[in-house]
Simulated assay, not measured.
Amino acid sequence: MKNKLRFILPRLIVLTAIAGLATLIIGTIFKLLLFGTVLFGIGSFAAARMRRRDRRAFQMDTAPVHPNVQRHYDTVVAIVPLNAQSRSKRATIVPVY
């Protein structure tokens, strides 16, 4: 029995140490992945909030633009059409077969 313990005990200690190191490494990898996921989530949330704030600020700062109204010293001078009116030649009847 004494010889069996001398034979098994060192191997058992080595296997326990290897299992402990493997558990430590795997646990560290998962903790790093979890930390990275949390940081990415916080960064995405902050970026979305900043984008939303910029969008609101942009909408509030800009006045409505009417390209077909020409302004002269903040008074409306004339309303100018955006596209010239295109007149067709004559109305024709197109037969449909």
Rank of each mutant, 00 (worst) to 15 (best):
M1L: 10
K2M: 08
K4L: 15
K4A: 14
K4V: 13
K4W: 08
K4Q: 15
L5F: 07
L5W: 00
R6F: 00
R6L: 13
F7I: 04
I8V: 14
I8G: 02
L9F: 00
R11N: 15
L12N: 14
L12E: 11
L15E: 00
L15I: 05
L15W: 02
T16Q: 00
T16Y: 04
A17I: 15
A17Y: 04
I18A: 15
I18P: 00
A19P: 01
A19F: 06
A19W: 11
G20A: 06
G20S: 06
A22L: 15
A22D: 02
T23R: 08
T23A: 14
L24S: 07
I25A: 03
I26E: 04
T28I: 01
I29K: 07
I29Y: 14
I29W: 12
F30L: 13
F30N: 09
K31G: 03
K31D: 14
K31L: 13
K31Y: 14
K31S: 15
L33K: 05
L33D: 08
L34F: 07
F35W: 12
F35M: 12
G36T: 02
T37D: 06
V38E: 12
V38S: 10
L39A: 14
I42W: 00
G43K: 07
A47R: 11
A47P: 01
A48I: 04
A48T: 05
A48F: 10
R49Y: 09
R49T: 13
M50H: 13
R51Y: 09
D54M: 06
R56A: 08
R56Q: 01
R56P: 01
A57C: 03
F58M: 05
F58K: 04
F58E: 06
F58T: 04
M60D: 09
D61L: 04
T62V: 06
T62Y: 00
A63S: 11
V65R: 01
H66R: 09
H66A: 08
P67D: 06
N68E: 15
N68V: 00
V69R: 05
Q70S: 12
H72S: 12
D74K: 01
D74A: 01
T75C: 11
T75Y: 05
T75F: 07
T75R: 14
T75D: 10
V76N: 03
V76W: 04
V76M: 12
V76R: 04
V77N: 11
V77R: 12
A78N: 10
A78H: 07
I79C: 10
I79A: 08
V80Q: 07
P81K: 04
P81R: 03
L82G: 14
A84N: 07
A84E: 14
Q85E: 09
Q85P: 03
Q85F: 07
S86M: 06
R87M: 06
K89A: 11
K89E: 15
K89P: 08
R90C: 02
T92Y: 08
V94T: 13
P95E: 09
P95F: 10
P95T: 10
P95M: 08
